[in-house]
Amino acid sequence: TELRLSHQWSTGDVRHKVAQMVADDVAAAGVDLDIKIFPSQSLLKAREQYKPLSRGLLDMTVLPLSYAGGQQPAYNLTLMPGLVKNHDHAARMNESPFMEAIEGIMAEDDVIVLVHGYLAGGFAAKDKCITKPEDMPGLQTRAAGKAFEQMLAGAGASIASMASSEVYNAMQSGVLDAVNTSSSSFVSYRIYEQVSCYTPAGEYALWFMYQPLLMNKAKFESLTEDQQKALLAASEKAQAFYLEEAKKEDAASAEVFRENGVEIAEMTAADFDAWRALAKETSYKAFVEETPNGQQLLDLAFAVE
């Protein structure tokens, strides 16, 4: 049996490595299961993978689940400021009733999770360090994710939307003052060449994005028991790898920025609480308003210790 996996990342990216690991292990299991990976959006564009996946026109993908927030508003909770504190907390999220609820919603779309995983990110700015909401007023900012845009706008920043590929030039020419994205994007887009200060995900971090390896449910159920077992075993192994790599990425990105002479700032506990208070008034509020059972889901997420 052949399965097709599409994702947007380059082959050097940890998310590709996770997919590759699963593909390799499944192949090694000798259960007549062959996963063909289409990296770098070579089959489908990043935001056009979830719909085909849920309709059974694509078998597997590695995807920031919040990309599908327009189809299932509940998914916006997987990129919500201040919800996840660090990678170990993220790992506990994955095993919680909260994630069960999210997986229940995915099941409605005929989608299941094979590998859970969160990646973190931070802030970088041209002329100053961003650690707390008071740093934001007047900055033209590109944020990754709807909930972050709402929170940063609430802090007084101006939100500019553009493709991630335009960010570097926009920073260089001064169209943008600040940017918020994942640690790996900061490095791969060489943002360190254009900023003076970087606030990576550290002891406290705001930006965590859930980016699981997903599969079409009907397709999974159509596999033989042996094939399913092999797939699940490979996924479990890949998930442990994913968590370790995710932890390494933040420190590695900070190192790259430091080497390039960029100042490294840190968020304190007080900063984190200030952001969270702001998020309550902005992102959380908007989320609860537009999502059926929004408050209940939010409570579930906060219940994770």
Partner: peptide
């Protein structure tokens, strides 16, 4: 046969680009 289903979606997606 089912792969034809995706064609309009992909066509729209290719144009979905600010540049």
């Amino acid at each position: 046969f089912r792969s034809l289903e995706l064609m309009p979606e992909i066509l729209f997606g290719k144009l979905d680009n600010f540049a």
